[in-house]
Design a protein around this nucleic acid. Sequence first.
DNA 1: AACCAGGTTCATT
DNA 2: AATGAACATGGT
Length: 284
Amino acid sequence: MKKYRLSASRPFDLDRTLACGQAFRWECRDGWWQGVAGKKWVRIRQDGDCLRYEGISESFLVHYFGLDLDLNAILASINRDPVIDRAIRQYRGLRILRQDPWECLLSFICAQNAHIPFITRMITALADTFGDPVDAPWGDAHALPDAGVLSALGDGALDSCRLGYRARYILPAARRAAEDPAWTEKIRALPDDTGRQVLMQFPGVGPKVADCIMLFGFSHYRSFPVDVWIRRVMARHYCPGECRDGALGCREYETVRRIAQEHFGPYAGYAQEYLFMASREGLV
DNA sequence: AACCAGGTTCATT
DNA sequence: AATGAACATGGT
């Protein structure tokens, strides 16, 4: 069991960070979060300013949870109006993870038009059915299958995972990733929004999913995924003039995204996460 | 039991 | 360029 001491100037809220719907491979059982990150199992809990964890190195811990970032400075930079201020006061400590891009690709293709518990089911089914077993202390656990594994499957192989129409996207997307194993490094090397355009060439990846992958998988903190919850809060508080009719009026994705990025700046993605929470919990 | 969900794609205007 | 419908599934 290892320990990591959080400094007072770098707030962190493990529970919110793992439960907020950016990652779908974590489960909380008797006070401990357990999950698989990459190929390794992880157990972790937070007691005040102390993180207790096992299964990973400290450097992985710091990188994965983004503990190297000065969150207070980031939140100060996005705190530009009363709405985001309320969300920040409520959720300070929520951080954006640095997940594996392939995991993000799978997760957010599945996430379209689905509730978060359902997304978790789908991702779990993919791992349990096709992923390599991981020797976790709590019992049976699996990593997510690599693109190569999924790309070799035939039509219908995913049926038992109950992915709905998303299954039609997963296999072609896996083939595309498998035929160019360096795709993540290529995107990493690309300038700002070019990587996003490359991601949108994957089947099943539109603007929203691409923004999620850039934000959660490539640490592109300016990305601002616009889902139904964000659309609501943006329509109500940030672009009423641009919106045709009340809550669901913000039609044009690119317009909402541009307004948010201009308003919140280079860490718009952090604002997105805080607004997402606030919108879902009825805070705004 | 309807309604809706971290949307994308395709066919029409 | 912009809108509308189909798409599968299951949580609330």
